[in-house]
Design a binder for these strands. Structure first.
Length: 478
RNA sequence: GGCCCGGUCGCCUAGUGGUCCAGGGCGCUUCCCUUUCAAGGAAGAGGUCAGGGGUUCGAAUCCCCUCCGGGCUACCA
């Protein structure tokens, strides 16, 4: 069993192609098969520098591994199509020799004009086979000096069909297919020629790819047939759609895996969420690690309809996976998301208290900033509860400071009782007292639990900030 | 326009002729818990299974038509 995924280095690793890659990975791993990474860079004009690195980075981050590839090597190296040109050219020649393909000398201008005419007459826009009947000898001779492409010689009649693993029986009439260019004038193959040759040469046993490739299947079938090769089983998996129902793309916002990493998403969450677009276990379980997926995922359960991308649902899964992390692991994952100068010991102490309050790792920073800087600026009015005023609040803060200052050890369980009693004495609700103190020490209305926050902040700083709040209310400080 | 693929609550989906006056999750509403926010618990709103014809004792599930959506229609992948 050999599966492949074949991205084009035309940009950052895309979230949609990741979903398809995950399926390939699962299929290969659950059957002890091999996974091959092949770079399809036959379009010279669309190459983007650094794209291959970004593909590698993204895949590594997700924990997807493979057996053969450009950097890994393997029995069918090279795994980059631009390094396999002679192979395609040789095979294109073979197709010509077999009469399954022909040289075409039409200029791009003629093709454009032809197209314009057809459009004007509301006819089908396709190649008119102008060069199809040039005698082979003459064509071969002209090919030595004239610029040319090689086109597939599509038969006039016949039916082409596959039994798709996802969609079942699909068929096409040969008459509806164009004489597709398979070798471009720059000597590079088009996708159609290159995939068929590589999938065959590399011993790919199952082709799983996005459904946008379905329309080109009949062309591939013709090429397989011309070479006399067996056609491997194919599975065309549904697309990941944007909110507007169209195939997810940059238009819908960033689709780069690296963006999700930078935004504080866990690879576990992304994989879990993505796997569920287009696949369902048929049970009510929905939290799956990659290993779980390898166990339960089945190609038979893959949907035939596309599914829309839903950020809220991704956020939910991210929260689930963040909560599953051990504290040590959470701290480790938080590392890139907090300033280097922040004390890691303090981070570790507060981590358990913000763990269930994060949608993304990025959320942590704002919630715990007060522990690492004294610059927590807030408005004096924010200190005063609705039913209170500056004077009573100042009083409350003074009393709180008095109550807190002798406490030893300064830990949450010791801090709570006296503050609860104080609230009662002041005839304040616990909520109001806690809210005022929270604002005084954190500068925010929401955050980790107050008593734990005081503990982690430490007695000295806590008292100092409460005093500062008092002064602010009393007008001592602006 | 042509070819192909789709169409179950706002979204992801379960469902493969009866146990479905359609189940779960996200989101939303309400309540509980509660020092905030979350998390957690409970309840609820939300679907004429795109529409119309068949087949059948019986259809979301099978067939046909229509409508709608998407993909492809490049010397792009």
């Amino acid at each position: 069993m050999r599966l492949r995924f074949a991205p084009s280095p035309t940009g950052a690793l895309h979230i949609g192609s990741v979903r398809t890659t995950i399926y390939n990975y699962l299929f290969a791993r659950q059957r002890d098969g091999a996974l091959i990474l092949r770079i399809e860079d036959t379009d010279q004009d669309r190459l983007v520098a650094g794209a291959i690195d970004s593909i590698y980075d993204g895949l590594h981050w997700l924990g997807i591994t493979w057996n053969e590839g450009p950097q890994e090597g393997g029995p069918h190296a090279p795994y980059v199509q631009s390094e396999r040109l002679p192979l395609y050219q040789r095979h294109a020649q073979e197709l010509i020799d077999k009469g399954a393909a022909y040289y075409c000398f039409c200029s791009k201008e003629r093709l454009a004009a032809l197209r314009a005419e057809q459009e004007a007459r509301h006819e089908l826009t396709r190649y008119d086979r102008h060069c199809r009947n040039i005698p082979p000898d003459e064509a071969a001779e002209r090919a030595k000096t004239e610029p040319h492409v090689i086109r597939l010689k599509v038969p006039d009649e016949g039916t082409l069909a596959i039994e798709d693993l996802v969609h079942g029986h699909i068929e096409w009439q040969a008459s509806t297919i164009e004489d597709q260019v398979i070798l471009k004038s720059d000597g590079f193959p088009t996708y159609h020629l290159a995939v068929v040759i590589d999938d065959h040469e590399m011993g790919i046993t199952h082709i799983m790819r996005g459904e946008e490739w379905m329309a080109s299947v009949p062309k591939h079938l013709l090429i397989y047939r011309a070479f006399g090769w067996d056609v491997p089983p194919m599975a065309h998996v549904p697309s990941v759609l944007g909110p507007d129902g169209k195939k997810l793309s940059k238009r819908h916002g960033s689709t780069a895996v690296s963006q999700f990493r930078d935004d504080g998403y866990l690879p576990e969450a992304l994989i879990n969420y993505l796997a569920l677009i287009g696949w369902s276990p048929g049970t009510e379980d929905e939290i799956f690690s990659m290993d779980d997926l390898i166990r339960v995922w089945k190609i038979e359960q893959v949907q035939s309809a596309g599914g829309k991308w839903d950020k809220d649902r991704l956020d939910y899964f991210n929260g689930v996976w963040i909560r599953k992390l051990s504290v040590d692991e959470l701290v480790r994952r938080l590392e890139p998301f907090v300033p280097a100068e922040w004390d890691r010991e303090v981070l570790r102490k507060i981590a358990p208290h913000i763990q269930e309050r994060m949608k993304t790792l990025k959320d942590a920073q704002d919630q715990i900033r007060f522990l690492f800087t004294d610059d927590i600026g807030y408005d004096r009015s924010a200190l005063i509860p609705k039913k209170s005023n500056a004077m009573t609040t100042t009083e409350a803060l003074a009393r709180a400071r008095a109550v807190l200052s002798p406490l030893e050890p300064f830990i949450a369980t010791v801090i709570e009782p006296p503050l609860v009693s104080l609230a009662a004495e002041l005839n304040w609700s616990k909520k109001d007292l806690a809210g005022t103190i929270r604002m005084a020490i954190t500068g925010r209305q929401v955050g980790p639990p107050l008593y734990q926050s005081l503990e982690v902040l430490g007695k000295e700083k806590s008292l100092r900030r409460i005093e500062a709040a008092q002064d602010m209310l009393a007008g001592v400080r602006a």
